[in-house]
């Protein structure tokens, strides 16, 4: 019998159309990019049982399992159940029918660097925040890319996301413990922004230069620098790859709490739904902001947010990027 698929429904269910007729590929979400070996075995089992035994590790830290016959989707969905329970339900995702597979595919997998469960540089448990966001935002059908990185080194490349969340710290200086060894000053000068200078044998921090990476804390041999308790983040917005205008995400909010980050992204969903172009299936969020302008985005996305003391916001944003249409810079070097 010929296949009779509701393609839109199938795509929402995380099965994509592939080159090979009658065969699909399943996109498995791994929020925060961290999973246990048993979950990995389930994913491997899906590939072996329903696919061709191969897996693609996606750029967003999920898995794509290719060469699954469309007709086996319901079997695959049944086999997915324990994975959905562990990686989605457990983090608070609302799923009406757990036997029916993924309930949405618009918002991409929320990726994260390895974070402070492992990395000494990280200022936060990035996996945990990615999972919290998964629970809060998934499922939705908007084209939104989110990533969380543990420090301004940005290993997960939040600069290419719609929402790039950077965990930062507020370094606190304990004057009496400082022996003036200059380790922090050198570290900041060599690796970061040169926010620290020596004055009278002690260290002076230029707050406007400090990006909150925590290098001073890491380098201090007397714990004269510590991180102020409580989590702080910088949020970069509307970076993207894409075929028209690739560009870097730029800082929008700085020194904000985790609640502020979550609320901002939550508020963005109705904003995007209100303003998106209805004539295309999934308009990329960055282009919506381009059209409405930053001020409208600000007004709607910041509604009802209670900012923590010390929170800062960008006055204006100019996104560095380029227009792919610009061909004038090319000349022929080989005929």
């Amino acid at each position: 019998m010929s296949l009779d698929l509701n393609r839109k429904k199938v795509t929402k269910n995380a099965y994509r159309i592939t080159k090979r007729r009658n065969y699909t590929a399943l996109r498995v979400r791994v929020p925060g990019g961290h999973l246990n070996a048993a979950q990995l075995s389930i994913i491997a089992g899906l590939a072996e049982t329903f696919g061709d035994g191969t897996l693609h590790v996606t750029a967003r830290q999920g898995f794509e399992i290719p060469n699954i016959p469309f007709e086996r989707m319901s079997e695959v969905n049944a086999a997915l159940k324990p994975l959905l329970a562990e990686l989605q339900l457990r983090h608070g995702v609302q799923i009406d029918n757990i036997d029916a597979g993924y309930p949405g595919a618009g918002m991409r997998n929320i990726s994260a660097c390895v974070g402070n469960r492992i990395c000494p540089f990280a200022n936060a448990d990035t996996t945990a925040l990615a999972q919290r966001l998964e629970g809060m935002l998934y499922p939705n059908d908007l084209h939104v890319k989110i990533a969380v990185t543990g420090c301004p080194n940005d290993c997960v490349k939040v600069h290419l996301q719609d929402f790039g969340i950077v965990a930062i710290c507020e370094p606190e200086y304990h004057y009496d413990d400082c022996i003036g060894c200059e380790a922090c000053v050198k570290a900041c000068e060599r690796k970061v922004t040169g926010a620290l200078t020596m004055q009278n044998g002690k260290v002076y921090r230029d707050e406007r230069r400090c990006i909150g990476c925590g290098e001073c804390v890491l380098s201090c041999p007397t714990a004269a620098w510590t991180r102020r308790p409580g989590r702080l983040y910088r949020v970069l917005i509307m970076g993207r790859t894409g075929k028209r205008n690739p560009r870097l995400a730029m800082p929008f909010l700085d020194r904000v709490s985790e609640d502020v980050v979550c609320q901002l992204i939550k508020n963005t969903l109705p904003y995007a739904e209100r303003h998106r172009l209805k004539c295309i299936p999934k308009e990329h969020i960055g282009y919506i902001v381009d059209r409405t302008g930053l001020d409208v985005f600000k007004e709607e996305a910041l509604t009802g947010i209670e900012f923590n003391p010390g929170a800062r916001i960008a006055k204006t944003i100019q996104w560095p990027g380029y227009n792919t249409l610009n061909d004038a810079n090319f000349k022929l070097i080989s005929k």
Binding site: N116, P120, V217, P229
Partner: peptide, 15 residues
């Protein structure tokens, strides 16, 4: 024990 004041984030300092 000083919670959260260790060299790495979410670690404690004991002094």
């Amino acid at each position: 024990r000083f919670a959260g004041l260790g060299r790495f984030s979410d670690t404690d300092l004991i002094r």
